[in-house]
Design a protein around this nucleic acid. Structure first.
Lengths: 337, 337
DNA sequence: TTTGATTGCACAATCGTTTTTATATATAAT
DNA sequence: ATTATATATAAAAACGATTGTGCAATCAAA
């Protein structure tokens, strides 16, 4: 017994088109105040709500954004999502969220789904899948913006944080504390973020005239276990590093565990720093020195840019590089001895 | 230049209806294999994808579920969401997620939105809003299932965990360790979970012949700051409790901070236990003794029930009460002295 | 009183599907 | 050869909105 615009029209004794114009406040509609009231009353009386599907079909616009993220349980993303949602909501858009679990296949499937569902634009926060997604979207000319990553050729729109700058900051902080033997547990080096942090690490060493020692550089991954394993190797080196810069906080946590297993105190015996400032970073013992990235802002800006594009508004900046911030806590200290 | 079913039909030299039937594998369609192939070829050639909106309009079904949650940054929810998404995906449904930030107004707005978007059913994981949501949904006869809560009158479908049992378990665990002065930082008492945990707490005391002391019972909330404030009051009591049962892990974290500020060691000076076993619980120092609830399962079951209802399948159990599990870590210890 | 403009609303086409009903051809049965 | 039955496809009517255009009625100006 769904009530349609026709029912309203009938009961109000007008034509459906008139009801539609009243609802949408068509500026070029001239209508008697009395009729308008009558229509509004009937709408309330019947508790009429327009059918968004029919509306979308006619308007060729769903006022919906599709957002693709790798893993909703990674504490990095919820804040980003909130930001995107906030920006979307401000312009009357809603968000449909797709979790790929880092599986390329799922990503592809979701992409198809979103296309079928006719979302007006895409927010892409996954980085793993060899740019197939980006390729697909540009090819079809669907509006999209990349979140926390760029495309391989750096075309298109994106909102990222300046990872080389962040890495540089935290590593220079270590140098200032007197460290010279600073190791780096790199993330995946085919991910842009991994590469950039490595670059920032090398830049910092270079800036401060500290020699780069390949033995102190180890490729890991972005998970806790990756940090644990890599730290084990590092800590068993004959000339042990006095500080470790981990690719992210999770990796730093793994390193913390490895250090604890060897009876090393942090930061007295060794400093360990992370990246991202996920909520857990300040909870752990010792609280992690890390780099805070503006997660909410990143999501918000991406959402803002995308909705503006869709609405045909001017977008002055569609390639945004956000500045990270150094957060000094307890896990970084003077060089021992 | 979107390609429609009409374009395909034209190019294949058939009627759109035939194309439609081929796509949907209409069983009562008899078609020459040759024609069918021709159509399929054209579909591939034009890279035709059906318009889901038009399809939904016609079919009166969007194959979409709306899920309302209070706070996506609360680590409790992502896992639940994943479960729901998994169940939905298995039956070809997708999920649109709505974050209310615990604001009743936002919840109402999202509800309207989801109705306009014609989702086929609702997953409701918010508890705060005086049942207006549930009322609305039942009144309009929209299919829905409650997640981690029940309606006031316990009608309708739901998937919850046995919170009184969980609370009982963890409190009895404390009693077994010798504690008698066990405080409880309750959650919001107009939320069912808050109420139930309080009930479990009292049941445990009662079972073990420990007197209930109103001074040890304090209403807080579900956030970390609530736990911090409540713990401050509790710890400044003349006869300090030897153990605190917090409404959830976040609250326990706040309590941990308050204890640390007073120089109290956990668990040597005071035991603190949480609820939910969110990922951070095992990372914090000391790792929290807590109650593990099957988050993924909760979401999955809710999603399964809802989609089955929608598809008209039999649902043997639409009121599920899941069993929690005690996880003993380091934050609970022998009573001091 | 006629003309012209403006107001107030209705008509009908359209969006891209699905689905019921109808029609035309081929095959089989009589 | 004729009728009955299957087979293969087409035509047309929804689904529930929006919107350009058109037609009266009202009002102002001449």
């Amino acid at each position: 017994m769904k009530v349609t615009i026709k029912d309203v029209a009938e009961k109000a004794g007008v034509n459906p088109s008139t009801v539609s114009r009243v609802i949408n406040e068509d500026p070029k509609l001239s209508i008697r105040e009395e009729t308008r009231q009558r229509i509004m009353d009937v709408i309330r009386e019947l508790d009429y709500r327009p059918n968004g599907i029919a509306r979308s079909l006619r308007l060729k616009s769903t006022r919906t954004l599709g957002m693709i993220i790798p893993d909703i349980t990674n504490p990095f993303f919820p804040e980003v999502i909130k930001g995107a949602e906030g920006a979307a909501a401000e312009r009357g858009f809603s968000l449909i969220l797709c979790n790929t679990d880092e599986e390329e296949e799922k990503e592809k499937a979701y992409l198809e789904l979103l296309v079928e569902k006719k979302v007006d634009g895409f927010l892409v926060a996954t980085a793993s899948s060899y740019d197939r997604t980006v390729e697909f979207l540009s090819e079809k000319d669907y509006p999209f913006v990349l979140v926390n990553r760029r495309s391989r050729d750096a075309t298109g729109r994106y909102v990222v944080v300046d990872d080389v700058e962040g890495a540089r900051m935290v590593v220079e902080h270590l140098v200032e504390l007197g460290h010279r033997r600073i190791a780096h547990i790199a993330g995946l080096l085919f991910a842009e973020t991994g590469l950039n942090r490595l670059e920032g690490y090398r830049a910092a060493l270079n800036n401060r005239q500290v020699d780069f020692d390949p033995a102190y550089m180890t490729e890991g991954g972005f998970r806790e276990i990756d940090g644990y394993r890599a730290a084990q190797r590092l800590l068993d080196l004959p000339r042990r590093p006095t500080a470790i810069f981990a690719a992210n906080d999770l990796v730093a946590l793994g390193a913390l565990t490895a250090a604890a297993e060897r009876g090393l105190r942090v930061p007295e015996d060794i400093s360990i720093v992370g990246y991202n400032d996920i909520p857990i970073a300040e909870k752990v013992t010792p609280p992690l020195t890390t780099i805070r990235v503006p997660l909410y802002d990143m999501g918000y800006l991406a959402g803002e840019i995308l909705t503006k594009i869709i609405l045909g508004e001017e977008v002055p900046e569609d390639r945004v590089i956000l500045k990270p911030e150094l957060v000094v806590r307890w896990s970084s200290g003077q060089v021992p001895g």
